[in-house]
């Protein structure tokens, strides 16, 4: 599904990713772990298409289609979703209205009509229940005054609504207590199918107790320095990142 070859990228002339190779197939869960400053956030941002980062070398395709030339919204229409570490608040725009706007923007780009209101409502209700969000929450302004846990649950709710091919979860566990973490992980696991894929980006191993990865990659100084199975995460937790260098 996602193929990244020899990817070099940076910001303002400073190289942060120094040759990333990564292949994610449908039905797989990958985790990227690494210390602060290793390039984790840069990698997720570059996949999602953030303009601040400049790709200097390498290629990146989604189902064979070149992602490099696409705007972030166009990548979203192709099925890329990123759960943000710090979601943005939009006062005055309800979560429901926001997700309607997002879904219909995608449908429009793909040449479909807007989703009928009844179908939208049904879907919203279904997915909200999955994430344990009540109705009052959905009629509140997007992320406005939400707690850290509420914001993260809202991100996964949006993921559930948008049904992406590739979901990148960027530090989704930060700021979550154990109950919220379980709810979020349970939501993600329910959404997992053989046709989609998940890339978990995390500093700590604890989220991987609940979202079990098929592969764990260790990122250090802009390169993937080690790849293993889920047991690699535990080893890192025990020995720290120093061990890998």
């Amino acid at each position: 599904m996602l193929k990244i070859k020899d990817l070099h990228a940076g910001v303002e002339g400073k190289e942060i990713l120094k040759g990333i190779n990564l292949e994610i197939k449908s039905g797989e869960i990958h985790a990227i772990m690494g210390p602060n400053g290793s390039g984790k956030t840069t990698l997720s941002s570059v996949i999602a298409g953030r303009e601040d980062f400049e790709v200097t070398e390498g290629s990146m395709t989604l189902d064979g289609e070149n992602l490099m030339e696409l705007e972030p919204d166009e990548r979203a229409h192709k099925g890329v979703f990123m759960s943000f570490q710090h979601p943005i608040a939009i006062p005055g725009v309800t979560t429901t209205n926001f997700i309607k706007t997002a879904i219909n923007a995608k449908r429009k780009a793909l040449g479909f009509d807007e989703m009928p209101a009844a179908e939208m409502l049904k879907k919203i209700r279904e997915k909200a229940e999955l994430l344990g969000l009540d109705r009052s929450f959905l009629s509140r302004s997007l992320n406005d005054g939400f707690s850290g846990g509420e914001k993260k649950r809202n991100e996964i709710f949006q993921m559930a609504m948008l049904e992406p091919k590739l979901a990148i979860l960027d530090e989704t566990d930060s700021g979550l207590d154990i109950d919220a973490l379980k709810t979020v992980a349970n939501g993600v696991n329910t959404l997992k199918t053989k046709d989609n894929a998940i890339l978990v980006i995390t500093h700590y191993q604890r989220l991987l107790d609940y979202i079990i990865p098929d592969y764990v990659h260790v990122l250090s100084d802009g390169k993937i320095v080690k790849t293993g199975g889920k047991e690699l995460a535990l080893e890192l937790e025990e020995k720290g990142y120093e061990w890998i260098k």
């Binding site: 601040d52 919204d73 943000f84 997002a102």
Partner: peptide
């Protein structure tokens, strides 16, 4: 705000609508 624009575009909302939503907010 660039971060906010990126967030909205990542959700599939094109530039014009994303800008409008942020100005409205």
């Amino acid at each position: 705000d660039k971060d906010a624009m990126f967030y909205l575009k990542q959700r599939g909302i094109p530039s014009k609508e994303a800008k409008a939503l942020l100005l409205f907010a």
